[in-house]
Structures are given as structure tokens and as C-alpha cells.
Design a protein around this nucleic acid. Structure first.
Lengths: 234, 234
DNA sequence: CAATAACATCTAACATGTTACATATTAGCT
DNA sequence: AGCTAATATGTAACATGTTAGATGTTATTG
């Protein structure tokens, strides 16, 4: 079969273009990760379209993207549901996250500048303030920002987006866990250790600290399953 | 804003469902990775729809997915183009690939069974035959299969799909490179070394061999840019 | 002739109508 | 009552019509 046109036109510059499907995607993703849309809950495209004042098309597009990301499950001709948590999938996501972020922090630690360290410390300051006033949402956002900053510090185009996408499953869990506990204080300490290692140019210590930090979540997860079994699938 | 229905219905079993958009996606992806659709070339949705005998909808859906994967670039209200190769993006993909596949092979080597080793060796046998008769396409497919098998051997649900998706960019390059040279013979040798390390349960050697194997491609890439600059963007 | 503005053209984005299919419900039968 | 088959219902998948915006071309003006 003959595909393509043989035409050679193309574009040089990148356009940012925020389309409606992008907006719908962001809104739904946020709703899912914050558990405003609970695991297992049905999503009715038509209703969402109505509520957001758009047609079904951008909603479908957004949902397809979320399905690729594993945040929703589409059953053809039947329905679309917020994906429930699955321990095996989360285990894989955890594995991927450790692989990517330890590799990233290694590169970041090797090439970290005084400027980078300054930004990281600034983030930590804000984390401390958020922790003090028990601002879960704020702390969560800063947590994400810190991990993003480390990805960026690795100096690889698009790495942050990839890591962030693979983190989706885990972000959902992390958000749920943050509310439970003393976890915020512990997390802060771990973050401080990570940044300190980078500041010291201790590459291997940075890697080890990051791995330890990410692994901690695995244990918390099992507790969550006991407390909230309805969120889980298999 | 109120999203969701509060409804709690959901499904247990997984449906496979090959929809038209999945088929179109596979066809286009294959066409892009095989360079039947060349980097920079325009893709006309309407034409593709006509040629495949479907409407524009499944074509758009497929293209959106390819855009997420970085294989096409959509410029709103303007056109859709096969993504040209970008050294910086490829560098990131390479980084991700090394991070994921070395981590995967570590796990795979730790838990490899006689059965796994047998399957890997069977694959190598077929690679040898393909190399002998200069069957580039066959060799390429077996190459992919080997890497997939190693991912599977890590025993993590969905890891293969993630690794495979992140490899897209690189697969395109690898395919172009295979035709050029003695690369097929070299690749075979590297694969043999990897499998041997797994068979010996030499975890660290397996990791090192894999990293070396993947890194080799980086050097070939620069040669490709010299020979075929029109495939590259920046 | 150069710069610019009006306009034509083309495409993706968006809207909406239609179809096919999975599932639940009900009716009919033993 | 219990089982099976016909049917109703609801949803995603698919088709197609419409809109908005990016770009290239041509006309207009200095």
C-alpha cells in the first residue's frame, strides 16, 4: 500500500498550541491524581463534555491519552473507568521510576552547578514552610517540582516529561499517602539528604539516597492496601 | 467544578479489542519506523483515511498517539509531519533506554531460569541464520524480540510495553543503520555476549555488556548524520 | 520595486450524527 | 423456579460536517 505523499514540506519552529483537548486532559488528569475522580469510578464522556462546555471529541482525545498513560481504562462499547490501583503495575512503575531517576540524579550530580544547588535549596526552604503549616497540597507540588528540577539538571531534552509521565501511577498513590502520616516530615528529611549529596558532588551517595527515598514508598503502599482495599483492583 | 458521577461500576476482566485506530496506528508506526514514511514528510490524514478505507477519526486518533510517542509532529491548523531525527531527543531516548534496559537485565540475570536461557539461545540461532543470508528485516525483528524477551524476563508487568515505546526513536535509527554495514555481524556478537552473561548468572557483566551494546549505536549515529543530513532536524 | 494588507487555500480542531457491540433485562419455554 | 433466547439500553467507535487559524499568494500602495 502506498502511504505518504512524497511531499517534503515541514516546519522548523516549535509551536506551543494549547488546544482544548490539552486543557481537558490536564483537568481530568489532575482530577484523577488528586482522587477527586476515584479509582474504579465511571467517566461519562458526554457528561464531562457538557460540564466543561466542549464537544465529545476533545474529551475522547484527552481520555485516549489518559488510557495510554494507564490512568483510565476504556472498555469498547461499554464504558470508561478511572483505573484502579494494581500492585503489579505500581511495582513496574516503581521499577521504572528508580531506574530513570537514579540515572538522572547521577548525571545531575556529575554536572551540578552552584546555580542548580541554589535552586534546589530554595525549593527545600519552601518545603519546610509547607510542612510546618501542614499544607499537603503545597508540599506535594513542591515535591514534584524537586524531582522535576533534578531531571532537568541532568541536561537531557524531554527527560522531565518522560519521567513525569511514567510517574503518573505513583503520583496518585503518593498523594493518597501524604495525608496519612508523619510521612511529610520523613519525606522532607529524605529530600534534604538528596540535595546535600548533590551539593557535595557525592555522586554515588546521591544515587543511593534517591533509591532509598523512592523505595520507601513501596512499604507505605502495602499499608494503604490494608486501609483502603476498595482502591485496588487485583 | 463537579466531575464524575459518583457511580462505582467497573469491570474486572481485560478485553483485548483491536479497534481500527489500533490497526491504523500499527500501520503508520511500522511505515515510519521502516522509513517508508521519511522524516520530515507530510502526512495527510484525509489521504491516509482514503487509502486505508476508514474515516478521518481513527486516523486522527492513531496520529495523536504517534505524536505522544514523538514519531510525528502536529502543527495545529497547518499539518502533520513525520518527525525528523533530532540528536538531542535521540540522546535522551538513548539515556532512557540504557537506564531501563540495564536495570531490566540486572533483574533478568538475577532471576533467569534454564527455560529463559533456552529461549534466548533459540533466538540467537535464528539471528545467525538471518545474518548469514543478509536478511535485514528478519534480523531486525529478532533483535527487537531479544530485547523484549529480556524485558519480560525481568518479570514486571507492562515493562516491555514501556521500554518498547521509549525505544521508538531509536528503533528508527537502528533500522537505518542496519543496512549500512558490517553492523549486523557486530550486533550479533554483542547479543551473544549478553546472553552468555545471563546464562552464567554474571549479573554485573550482563549489565556492562548491555550498556556497551546500546552505547555503540551512539557512535554510528554521528556517521549517519554525515551521510544523510536531510533526515535530521536541528 | 519593496513593504504590506487583503484574500485564497489548506489543515487540524472541533462538533455532531450514526453504528456496532457489550451488557443487562425481560420474555418465553420446560 | 430455572434456563435460554429475544430485546432493550447505553457506550465507545466510527463517520462526516463545520470552524478557526496558519500560511502562501496576490493585489495595493508608498
Amino acid at each position: 500500500m502506498q502511504l505518504g505523499t512524497g511531499g517534503k514540506s515541514y516546519r522548523e519552529q516549535k509551536v506551543v498550541a494549547v488546544t482544548r483537548k490539552d486543557q481537558v486532559y490536564s483537568i481530568l488528569r489532575q482530577a484523577i491524581i488528586s482522587s477527586q475522580l476515584a479509582p474504579g469510578e465511571a467517566i461519562r464522556k458526554e457528561l464531562v463534555a457538557l460540564q466543561l462546555g466542549v464537544s465529545r471529541t476533545p474529551v475522547s482525545d484527552a481520555i485516549n491519552r489518559l488510557a495510554d498513560e494507564g490512568l483510565v481504562e476504556i472498555y469498547p462499547q461499554t464504558g470508561t473507568f478511572v483505573a484502579r490501583l494494581r500492585l503489579d503495575k505500581i511495582e513496574t512503575a516503581q521499577f521504572v521510576r528508580i531506574a530513570l531517576e537514579t540515572a538522572a540524579i547521577r548525571r545531575a550530580a556529575e554536572r551540578s552547578s552552584a546555580d542548580t544547588v541554589h535552586s534546589l535549596r530554595n525549593n527545600l526552604d519552601r518545603q519546610r514552610k509547607a510542612a510546618e503549616i501542614r499544607d499537603f497540597e503545597g508540599f506535594y507540588a513542591l515535591d514534584e517540582e524537586l524531582h522535576d528540577m533534578i531531571c532537568d539538571a541532568a541536561g537531557l531534552v524531554g527527560l522531565r516529561e518522560i519521567a513525569s509521565k511514567e510517574r503518573s501511577q505513583i503520583d496518585r498513590v503518593r498523594r493518597l499517602l501524604l495525608h496519612y502520616e508523619t510521612r511529610m516530615v520523613e519525606t522532607l528529611k529524605e529530600h534534604e539528604a538528596i540535595v546535600a549529596a548533590i551539593a557535595d558532588n557525592s555522586v554515588e551517595r546521591a544515587v543511593a539516597t534517591m533509591e532509598d527515598h523512592i523505595s520507601k514508598m513501596g512499604k507505605m503502599l502495602l499499608q494503604l492496601q490494608t486501609k483502603r482495599p476498595e482502591l485496588f483492583a487485583s
